[in-house]
Design a protein around this nucleic acid. Sequence first.
DNA 1: CATCTAAATGAAAATGATTTTCATTATCAA
DNA 2: TTGATAATGAAAATCATTTTCATTTAGATG
Lengths: 163, 163
Amino acid sequence: MWRVLILRRRGRGPWWHNRFEDFGVRVTEPREVVMEVLLDTEEHLTAADIYVRAHELNPAIGLTTVYRTLDILLQMGIVQKFDFGEGKARYELINNSQSKEHHHHLVCVQCKTIVDYYDFVDEELEFIRKTQDRLSDKYRFHIMDHVISFYGICEKCRMKSQE
Amino acid sequence: MWRVLILRRRGRGPWWHNRFEDFGVRVTEPREVVMEVLLDTEEHLTAADIYVRAHELNPAIGLTTVYRTLDILLQMGIVQKFDFGEGKARYELINNSQSKEHHHHLVCVQCKTIVDYYDFVDEELEFIRKTQDRLSDKYRFHIMDHVISFYGICEKCRMKSQE
DNA sequence: CATCTAAATGAAAATGATTTTCATTATCAA
DNA sequence: TTGATAATGAAAATCATTTTCATTTAGATG
């Protein structure tokens, strides 16, 4: 009988509440707001970006808590952290239907422009799945995500250096 | 006649001297030392690591110059910059026979451990070459390098969270 | 519902990597 | 040799992130 009650309780609220519970952390107001911000964007946000938006929704929230929440979400596998040489990290929800599709990056080492590309995902998927399985097995990792980035020089910079 | 002289001059010294010249920057003592350090290691060094070693070879060299030199080397496509969530970048010569073989990373989002893996490079190569060609073409990038990182939870952390 | 304890919080300080500033020095073409 | 310009190092500034710590909150328990 209590089992039913528990199931009902677990069923309430947004999907991430259970994830928090399973991970052994509390669902709190600031964490809800950070999730809200992440769910409501299509961009890769920095911690500061998230802070600004969260702060609009609830001025009581501090930057420190944003950082702490992001770290928890990262460990839970709910967000992905990107780090492409900007000197700051960017975060994005994984599997958020609202958010961008799965994609990777093309970075110009000269002007630091970052191009998101969505191409060739099918071929990638096959390669990634195979590699991931083998790595998981060999290194006993539970792999949740991956990042592929290409580095080079964009056309504009190439032109410039030919002058 | 002077053409021969110029060719001779270009032929002198280590290979990177011409690269510097072509890129329009001078070959200087501090830059030589940074190159020396990079050529002589198999690790991914941080700017601070490089500074310490360069400083041993020539105490006149400053950290600022190390940063500046690394940025130039990056733009020239001589070094690769890695950025895996440590809060600092790591640098490694590209195509340095001394240096580590081509490899990628497995990052534990919980304990932040980074595992280098060298496996499955052949399958990767095929996938990468194909993708790279198509991206170069479509986005008009001259692609010089790529990074693949997998994120997950290592066995140790998985055990810990099951307690 | 009141109470208690551990978890969570925010502000401020600390840290640490990287960048900027600026006065000085080194390079190299003329 | 010299003059213009690039490169340098030290110190200060910047900026992202983390730590500290006193206070508040969630939620289990009585």
